[in-house]
Design a protein around this nucleic acid. Structure first.
Lengths: 213, 213
DNA sequence: TAGATTGTTAATCGATTAACAATC
DNA sequence: TAGATTGTTAATCGATTAACAATC
């Protein structure tokens, strides 16, 4: 009964609420869904439904107890449990992500990176070893890797994805600009920067001209 | 009549199709929506509707002409027009993105980065100058900057967003884990890595235990 | 002609929003 | 009590999928 089904959209907003609640917890004991909705320009019912999915302890007139909400969201997100991770593709984007320390706050622990370029294999990036791609399966199995980050070119992404899935990895964070086919039970989260840029560019362009007549 | 309204979801898939079409154009003259849908595990009607939004020249039995499709998608995405961009927040993630060359392929041209740490201001990251945050307005106005990338901590993101919008920037790529309020006409594209990790972590956790009874 | 493929119209699905009753 | 706020049920909206007619 503890585990309600939480929609992906709700799940995406929870870290945002959590960050906000942490920032106000020193000066606010209670908070209403209405106040949160105004902070972020969201619909108040939406916020209430989101909070309901993790909590359900709101009280009319008073709202929610900030510290309780924080504890409940943290419990759902389970920020403290580390996710053992490998990153495949130590090119520009891969190295950039390896160097980004911020992931640690979210429980992400990158154990190793893989690449097939001999010049980068054997080096360390931000203290993390870059290993030859041939070692992928061995390391994933031995270290019980749970999560794979894909930063190879689109043309190789599906093959890497297949290999990761074959090692028992069930969560894949895909930065390659392609759509991956995966077996049932494996979750792919796409961080498609090309798609995001398409949205932004289109907006910039639409503003200027419209139809060229 | 040239400009049909293209939904955001469709727009996100177009770069994926484009990449695939480029990869096959040497050996395929025609391609059917069905074939594309199978390549990516999508619904065939969905692909057809997507292609329809940019083209509408498909022929029964034959499908679409690959080179025509490529030209039409490129025209809609307008990859060749450069978007003049600034990046605000030269911390770990900011520096990582500055070092990523891949953006160039998508028409993104980062003119300068901004930060308020004296130790990083005045330096170059990947050949791009990091300037003091106080210069933000001057540079944006003088260089006619169109797009802003926000990589500051969540607590400062809204303020930076307001300042960018005040300089006439109408497209914002937000990597801070928060939701931004913007004036009408300004588009925010969120690349919320914390949200993505929430989805992935939840999946990993749900698999293992489920409810602790 | 037969069959693959397109494009359209209707049905389904999920998420957001609106309306409203319950409660402190 | 009055009013703010919660939580629920119904309406709306947009996107995906299914069914089907048109066409090469």
């Amino acid at each position: 009964m503890d585990e309600k089904i939480i929609s992906a959209r709700t799940l995406r907003r929870l870290p945002v609420y959590l960050h906000y609640l942490n920032s106000i917890q020193d000066h606010c004991r209670n908070i209403s869904a209405t106040a949160i909705s105004e902070e972020f320009g969201l619909n108040d019912v939406q916020v209430r439904k989101d909070l309901n999915a993790v909590s359900g302890t709101g009280r009319p007139k008073t709202g929610y107890v900030v510290t309780e909400l924080i504890a409940q969201i943290e419990s759902v997100l389970d920020c403290r449990t580390e996710s053992k991770t490998v990153l495949v593709g130590a090119g520009n984007l891969g190295k950039a992500l390896l160097s980004y320390e911020g992931f640690r706050d979210f429980g992400l622990n990158i154990i190793a990176a893989f690449d097939n370029s001999p010049t980068i294999c054997g080096t360390l990036v931000n203290g993390k070893p870059v290993l030859p791609l041939t070692d992928l399966e061995t390391v994933c199995r031995e270290k019980h890797i749970q999560l794979g980050i894909i930063t190879v070119p689109a043309s190789q992404a599906q093959e890497i994805c297949d290999r990761l899935a074959a090692c028992g990895i069930t969560a894949i964070w895909n930065f390659a600009p392609t759509i991956l086919r995966v077996p049932a039970g494996v979750l792919v989260e796409n961080e498609n920067l090309a798609s995001s840029l398409a949205i932004l560019s289109k907006h910039l362009r639409a503003e200027k001209g419209g139809a060229p007549t």
